[in-house]
Structure formats: C-alpha cells, structure tokens
Design a protein around this nucleic acid. Structure first.
Length: 605
RNA sequence: CGGGGUGUAGCUUAGCCUGGUAGAGCGCCUGGUUUGGGACCAGGAGGUCGCAGGUUCGAAUCCUGUCGCCCCGACCA
C-alpha cells in the first residue's frame, strides 16, 4: 500500500527541507572530473540530461535566479533595457549576416521535421547562439533618429551552441543561460562610453556576487570588432591562459597577449654575407636543423607557414623558436582562414613543408600569394637560415630587410611567460582562468550589413556603432563554486547562496524545537535572509554533512542538548568556531548576524 | 573531427584477461535498537550486464558494428 504524506499546512517563504527537494549525493558521479562539477551534482543543484544539457534543480535554480537578479540590477543601473527575443531564429537572418560562414557549424538547425523534404537543404530555422542577427534588424526597423540613441538592450536567456566538446558540467554546455546585451550609439566616442559603462557594470556585478573576476584584454574572434575585454575567474581548470604583470596591471588573454620582446628602438641588422645554399637532405623540422651537423639555433631560423585565407594562400613568417598564435591572424582581414595542405603548398612554393622560405625569387609562384606576413620578432634575427623552396635545401646568411619579401609586419607569435611586459618591462606571468564574461566594441560590422542607420541633425545618414556584451550565468555559478569550496562542500558567497540561513533542527519531533525554528526563521527573514529549515528525521551527522555540502553561509543548530542549556548554536560555513547564543537573545543576534553578512558581500581582494 | 578511455541496480563499483547466465557498498522499503559530524542488527525489493549482429552446447566475459558518456586538442559565455 503506497503511503504518501499529507501536505504540511506550514506556509511562508521559508522552506522546510522535508517538503523541498535537495537530492544530495554521498559519492561523486563518475562523469564529473573537477571539484565544481562534482559539487554541482552532489549538492543537488543540477542533474545531467545529456552531454552539455542540464536540469537546474530547485537549489541550482535559486542561485541562477539570484545571479540573474543582481545582473539585472547592475545593467538597469547602467541604463540598459531588458527585453526578450526568440530562441528560434529564421535561418535567413543569419544567412544575411556577416558571420554565417563561420558561425553555422556551431548552430543547431531546427527544421520543421514533418515530411523530411528539407533533408540536405539549408536549414529553415536555427537555435540562437547569440542575438546580433535578431536585434540589429529590429533596431534598423525601430530606430532611425539620433534622438533615440544611445540604446542598450539586454536579455537573460537560453543560448544554444553545438559545442564541439561540451565539458565540465555547466562550464561549457550546449544549452546554457547567458545575459547578452547590445548597445547602439551614434559614433565611436559614444560607443566607447557605452562600452566603459558596461565594463563598470560588469565589475560591480562580479564584485556583488562574490566572484573575483578580472578584466583582461581579449581577442575579438569571430565576433569581429575593434576591441574587447574578457572577465576571467582565475582557476586551474579554466580554458584560457591569462598573461599578466603585477607591476603594471597588464592582463590579456593568451590569444591577444603581447610582449616587449622586440625593443621599440631596434635597429635592423645589416647582412653578414651573401646567401648560400645549405644542403639539408631529409631535414624538415626546426629541431632537426638545430641538431648537429647543422647546429642552427631555432632563434636564428625562419619558420614559414602557409595558410589559406578566403581561398588564397598566404605566408606567415616566425622565428623558429616561436609558436604561431593563430587567433592573431584574425587581424589580417580574412573571413575564413586555415592551414594549407601539402597539396596546396607545393604548387605555390615549389617545395614541401620543411623546406619553405620567403626569400625573394625562391618562391615558385609568388603572384598566387595573398601576402607575406611576418612576425616582428624575426627582426631580431640578424643572420638567419630558412628553407630554399627546394626540397632538402636551406639558405643561410638570410637577412630580413635584404632578402625577405614581406607584405606586412605584425604580432603573430604566442607570448611566453617571462618575456617583458609591454607596459612595465617586468617578466610576464601566466595563469589559467575561466571566461565568465566578455565585452566587445563591435563597430559597424552588423549595422552596415543589416542597414541599421540613423539620421543625424544634419540630415546625414550613418550606421550605428554597436557593442555587445555577454555573461555566462551558469558558467559563473560554477566558477563561484570552483573558487569557493572546501573538502566538505560549497561555501556560497552570501549574495548568491540558494539559502543564506539553514536552521538545523536535530529533534524535529519536539514541537518546541520546531516552534523555535520557525520563530528564528521569521526573525532572520525579517532581516533579509532566505531561510531553509532542516526538519528531516535524520541523524545529526547526516544533517551537518548535508549542511556543509550545500554550503549555506549561516547555520543555526537547535538541539536537545542546547535547549536544556538554554542556547542555540550559530556557525558560519566559512569558519570553524561555533557561537552559543542564549535563547532570549537568539532572534535578535540572528537578525544582527544576517544584517552583518548581507552588508559585507564584497569579494575578498 | 582526430587521439585516449569507459558503459554492469537510482549512485559508486567488483566480475571481463583465463566463457558456465551477476556480487558488494551507498541509497530505498519493513521491523527493531540507536540519536551532536554521513549509526547498528535482521529481513526485503531492485539488473534485457548500452544496443545490434556474430562465434560457441553456453557470452557481462571473445569478435564485428553501432550508440552514449568522460578525458586531451581546435571553438566559446
């Protein structure tokens, strides 16, 4: 005979654990690797539906709602306006946009299933990975005058991206919650002001939620646009390397980071001798040329890479000892680029990879090239060695200015820790970080494409200057756990804790204990806390373990022992000590503790 | 997509190498004893061993295929 339980008549915003739903786990799920992912599941915040797809259980949802609410408050304060856009987009919107070729592979197509007649054709609908392609046409239709600018719209909504590899729980999901905002301004100066305002809003958002996120210079990637910052939470499990300097405050994503390796006043070396063949049969790597009998240091070798940019080959020249930072090629203006295949390389260069070079006159078909782009660090090579574009032959005594046909110098190499900071000259450091937010100054890439123009007071028409801004709400939730947990569980910052006070009633069968719990809960709620009462018929050990696991910042214990003594116990999740409070003062002290905690939500420095 | 790993009860897993039709811990249910840091005793329910073929008298175990998941790389909030 199945036995349910009768509904409890207890009402109010405080929750009774026995009536709520917090499925905690003693053991970590087998598919979780990192601490925050394990705790997300163990503390009953989420459950996995499939790869990169998660259900937010009540506790997880509460944190998401708090993050969203604080985000809203900060954006509203910055003058942004909330709206809501569809997640299902006509594919046409994207096909008209500037990044369809690059973005289509991460988008889920959502065709009308029906009769399958559309199989193999272009999709009818796509699930939105972001919303530039939706909001820009909207603004084109609705805003035409400088009088209506600036405007900044945001939403906090679900995004869909067919991530090649979903990972680490909410860290990289296929469906995730993101705040995305889009600013529209009359010109560059105003757009920069909007950008700065958003940057300030981000800083205060991350401070309020207790996350120590730092703003770092970032690459603009497929978004396009002129400059951008990422907000990173330092963590070993992060996907990104942040290059930084403590002396100057310089901080940049590895993709963007640069160093003062090449002095500004560098004088290019004069040639040391005539070009000369060096027979190198079978030598196709930097390392092989570095070894005896050739003994050419990697620092004196030229590395010649061939890429295909929008269908045309181009060359990238680096020092042999340097690595290409592929993202930096984005500045060259190609819509799509990729490494060339050996079959594409030989007809142009005249040799296979391993014997390539950019010395004038040695390239088989130089007119096929879209350009020769050299990393400026090659200027440090006075007298170098490079491939002769004949298999098994290199050239030595190569001089950059005399011998190489360079279209343009640039910064294409990957910075290494220890190189001088571009601002202070001090050695650069590196650490891993989780990207929780990103802001871009977009420029007019989208407004021009979609015709989002306005008329100024001189009756002149101009494209609006845009910015776009994102915060991964779910990823931020997990980043907070990653940086704020201990061996026993999560340690929530006050502002985002699913509940801020947990009242552990060790003897819930005693009416006086439960009465006291509800009385204290009311006092704490009056002071502004969200309260959970653990009224389960569990042993104390179970309750304490669960309390630590779910990480509620403040805990009150009501036990038979204490009641005899006339006290309750007050304990912070982040501290070891337990404070005994006489019953007569319990309500007042609890309220005071709540007010104190709520007032100090700043992230530690 | 390339490389590596893995799939056995709600969860964590043993068994697989060396075929003989599945075992434990947690959790759950019943009863009892307990009761301040994941209790104990007794009893019980729960598994098409991811799926599909194949080999074999016989397959969780061997072979082939396939799917899911996890990790490393490219991508991103």
């Amino acid at each position: 005979m199945p036995r349910g339980r009768l509904a409890d008549s207890f009402a109010g915003s405080m929750k009774l654990w026995s009536l709520y739903f917090i499925p905690t786990l003693k053991e970590s799920p087998a598919d979780a690797e990192i601490a925050s992912h394990k705790l997300l599941v163990r503390a009953g915040l989420v459950r996995k539906l499939g790869g990169g797809l998660y259900t937010y259980l009540p506790l997880g949802l509460r944190v998401m709602q708090k993050l969203s609410q604080i985000c809203r408050e900060e954006l509203d304060a910055a003058g942004a306006i909330e709206l809501w856009m569809p997640h299902l987009h006509p594919a046409e919107n994207w096909q008209q946009g500037p990044r369809w070729p690059a973005a289509r592979e991460i988008m889920f197509r959502a065709d009308h299933a029906g009769d399958g007649k559309r199989a193999g054709r272009e999709p009818e609908f796509v699930l939105g990975p972001t919303h530039e392609e939706v909001i820009t046409p909207l603004i084109k239709a609705e805003i035409t005058s400088y009088r209506d600018l600036p405007k900044n719209f945001y939403q906090i909504a679900t995004k869909f991206r067919n991530e090649i590899r979903p990972r680490y729980g909410l860290m990289r999901a296929r469906e995730f919650v993101m705040m995305d905002a889009y600013s529209f301004d009359v010109d560059d100066a105003h757009a920069i002001a909007s950008y700065q305002k958003m940057k300030a809003a981000y800083v205060s958002f991350f401070r309020r939620i207790g996350a120590h996120a730092i703003a770092v210079e970032a690459d603009t990637g497929v978004m396009g646009g002129s400059f951008s910052h990422e907000f990173m939470v330092p963590a070993e499990v992060g996907d990104d390397d942040v290059i930084y300097c403590e002396a100057s405050g310089y901080a940049a994503n590895r993709e963007k980071a640069t160093s003062a390796l090449v002095p500004a006043d560098l004088v290019d070396a004069a040639p040391e001798g005539a070009l000369e063949d060096l027979a190198t049969p079978g030598v196709v790597t930097i390392a092989a040329l570095e070894a005896a009998p050739y003994s050419v240091p990697a620092t004196a070798q030229f590395k010649t890479l061939v890429f295909m940019g929008d269908g045309k080959p181009f060359l990238v020249i680096l020092r042999g000892c340097d690595e290409l930072e592929e993202a930096k090629l984005g500045s060259l203006g190609f819509t799509l680029f990729r490494p060339a295949t050996p079959d594409e390389i030989e007809p142009v260069m005249g040799a296979k990879p391993g014997s390539l070079g950019a010395v004038r006159g040695t390239i088989k078909n130089p007119s096929a090239l879209a350009g020769v782009f050299a990393d400026q660090a090659i200027r440090l090579i006075g007298n170098g060695t490079t491939g002769a574009n004949r298999d098994g032959v290199h050239l030595r005594h190569v001089n950059v200015t005399r011998d190489l046909a360079i279209t343009q110098f640039g910064d294409f190499r990957r910075v290494r820790p220890g190189e001088p900071c571009p601002l202070s000259g001090q050695p650069l450091l590196v650490r891993r970080g989780i990207e929780v937010g990103h802001i871009f100054k977009l420029g007019t890439k989208y407004s021009e494409r979609y015709g989002a123009v306005y008329t100024d007071d001189q009756k002149q028409s101009h494209p609006m200057v845009m910015g776009c801004y994102g915060i991964g709400i779910g990823r931020t939730l997990q980043a907070i756990i990653e940086q704020s947990h201990d061996a026993d569980g999560i340690v929530w910052p006050w502002a985002v804790a699913p509940f801020q006070l947990l009242i552990c009633v060790l003897d819930p069968q005693l009416p006086e204990a439960m009465d006291l719990a509800k009385q204290l809960a009311a006092a704490a709620e009056g002071a502004g806390a969200d309260v959970l009462i653990d009224d389960r018929a569990e042993r104390p050990g179970v309750k304490f373990k669960d309390a630590d696991l779910i990480g509620v910042p403040l805990r009150v214990t009501i036990g038979g022992k204490g009641l005899k003594e006339g006290i309750i116990e007050l304990k912070r999740r982040s501290a070891k000590d337990v404070v005994k409070v006489p019953l007569a003062e319990a309500g007042a002290q609890l309220a005071a503790a709540v007010r104190a905690a709520a007032g100090s939500t700043q992230a530690p420095a």
